[in-house]
Design a protein around this nucleic acid. Structure first.
Lengths: 200, 200
DNA sequence: GTCTATACATCGATAGAC
DNA sequence: GTCTATCGATGTATAGAC
């Protein structure tokens, strides 16, 4: 009893960490496959091969393929949250909105598969779990206050801001992923939206 | 020789028409399946069953599933072109832009699967053929002149207009297909873009 | 935890008879 | 043109040895 308890206490954490590290390795390999074959083109057999195990062994770490996508969704949003929180936002709220949005767009253009999983509905049947979705909300939450402080206090203003940025980003990714034909208008449109809030 | 030639001349058209009618029936059935199971959820077996033939027989009419998608892409764009060309556009160019865009959005919201095939990259590996793509360009071409006449003559203005409308439409479809939380801002944003052209 | 082996379902696509 | 039969790939999942 005492030995079992001691073992449970002493080894629970390292084991969990080792497992977590393996999950992370699998997710990292999955991102690589996604970049190569598209987010929907991940095959569990390829993924298992990439991490040096056999396909059924993946089920030790994920209950289903959707659970893998959910882990990737959470992972991608954690990356975004880290990027956003590392930003040194200027005091001027209007400029802060622009800096925030620029970082969001840079993140989006960096990895198209990641963008599709996080911000589009590209996987048939996949819906993020509530826990993962909470991460997605956390990434965007700072923008709410910034937009309001910049003078666009109507909820519709935030809707427009996000939709406009998504529209520019989507056109950029779809038609010219390495150029700036669409996103070069971002700052100007942000100014327009702030200067002409929906409330007036 | 003469009989063969006569048969070729006399029957070539009816045969082609019968075949064309069958292709149209298959495409129509495919749209119905897409509405029920999503654009990527069309199975060739279900599609064959819907038109009363067996799955391999579809290959008499389409070389591949992508060829079916291409036919659907062309068909959807022909529907859009017809809708656009049937519009009675007002003389005032700014109002004409709004009427055009309203029709485009109504068309988009009418059938989400059609929207995804025509305006998003939702089918892995599918790229429209040049002929089909020409139809897509034809649907949007009238907007070029309207936007210019309305006072937004810079090419970037048209890019912005399309991207903004797509952003609003996409948010609407993704989050609330039957509501108007995003698209209710359309006219206001069109005015904004026209009043503050990129050239000034 | 990991493996082999296997089952069962789906799918797009092809060969060849009629 | 249409069919039957089949191929090879996929994803999902399980049983049972080690």
């Amino acid at each position: 009893m005492r030995a079992r308890s001691a073992r449970g206490v002493r080894r629970a954490e390292p084991i969990a960490l080792r497992r977590e590290a393996k999950v992370e390795a699998i997710v990292a390999a999955a991102w690589e496959l996604a970049r190569a074959h598209g987010i929907a083109g991940i095959s569990l057999r390829d993924l298992a091969r990439a991490v040096g195990i056999k396909q059924p062994s993946l089920y030790v770490y994920f209950d289903s393929k959707d659970a893998l996508y959910d882990e990737m969704f959470a992972d991608g949003n954690r990356q975004l949250v880290a990027r956003i929180e590392a930003l040194d936002l200027p005091a001027d709220p209007r400029l802060a909105v622009k800096v925030f949005i620029r970082e969001w767009i840079a993140f989006a253009l960096e990895d198209i598969s990641r963008y599709q999983l996080l911000f589009q509905r590209h996987i048939p049947g996949f819906t993020p779990s509530p826990e993962s979705y909470a991460l997605a909300e956390r990434a965007l939450r700072p923008l709410i206050g910034l937009v309001r402080d910049a003078g666009a206090a109507d909820p519709g203003d935030l809707d427009c801001m996000i939709a406009v940025v998504a529209g520019l980003t989507d056109a950029q990714i779809s038609n010219d992923p390495t150029g700036d034909r669409w996103i070069r208008h971002t700052d100007r449109l942000i100014d327009l939206l702030i200067d002409h809030t929906n409330q007036e």
